[in-house]
């Protein structure tokens, strides 16, 4: 079964002024005759970009979890916490629902996002036609959930700004927070640069 697509008819809509034009023949790059914007029927280099950003995010994911996120210094001494040690502390101190929440938002979600996006990119690259609908849904969920991972970074930043009482108590954001923020931003960018239409392109090329 073949669904008609704009690309199938050689039509391209301008991203800026929404003018629908005929794409130039021979796969050359087109420019919108009205506003002069670059024209492309799919996000350019979508898979490569997604991969690049995903790899960068995966690399940063390691220091994000190893390096301390929050450095608490008080007159009792200095303590630096990583995300995992924070989760462990919450769990041991009895508030396991909070521990689960933090674990899900800060460790599981970024990790699943990395894995899911990799799966999507890989499946697009291999022109797989399996689970088309499910994959599209997965992408929508990723788009929605992605931004909530920044919760941790927000908490640390708010604490660092609020708890600043000189030698009595002082909270600083650790290097881990920076890396963690990097991971979240990069995965968001990766999911943005991914073009979900390409999931469905596999069906067209098979038949057309």
């Amino acid at each position: 079964m073949t669904a008609p697509t704009a690309a199938g008819y050689g039509l391209v809509a301008c991203h800026v002024c929404e003018l629908v034009t005929r794409a130039p023949r021979g796969g050359a790059e087109g420019v919108c005759p009205r506003c002069g914007a670059q024209l492309h029927s799919r996000k350019p280099n979508a898979v490569a970009r997604t991969w690049a950003l995903l790899i960068a995010a995966a690399i940063l994911y390691l220091p994000a979890n190893i390096e301390p996120v929050m450095i608490t210094s008080s007159f009792l001494g200095t303590q630096s916490d990583t995300i995992l040690s924070g989760v462990a502390y919450l769990y041991h101190s009895g508030s396991w629902p909070l521990a689960v929440l933090v674990f899900a938002a800060s460790i599981l979600v970024p990790l699943l996002k990395l894995i899911a996006l990799s799966y999507l990119a890989a499946s697009v690259q291999s022109r797989s036609r399996a689970n088309l609908l499910q994959r599209t849904r997965l992408y929508r969920v990723l788009e929605f959930v992605g931004r909530w991972s920044m919760l941790d970074v927000f908490v640390v930043m708010v604490l660092a700004a609020l708890v600043n009482m000189g030698s009595l108590a002082n909270i600083q954001a650790g290097r881990g927070a920076m890396f963690f923020g990097g991971v979240v931003v990069l995965t968001m960018l990766a999911s943005m640069s991914f073009d979900p239409r390409m999931i469905w392109d596999a069906t067209r090329e098979e038949n057309g």
Partner: peptide
């Protein structure tokens, strides 16, 4: 429908985006 103008050959954005993971690797 108007015909899109043919743009000049752009430089490939392919190499540019790979700088990001390169930086990540360097930092790591």
């Amino acid at each position: 429908l108007p015909q899109a103008q043919v743009a000049g050959k752009r430089r490939s954005s392919f190499s540019l985006v790979w700088i990001v993971p390169l930086i990540a690797v360097l930092i790591g």
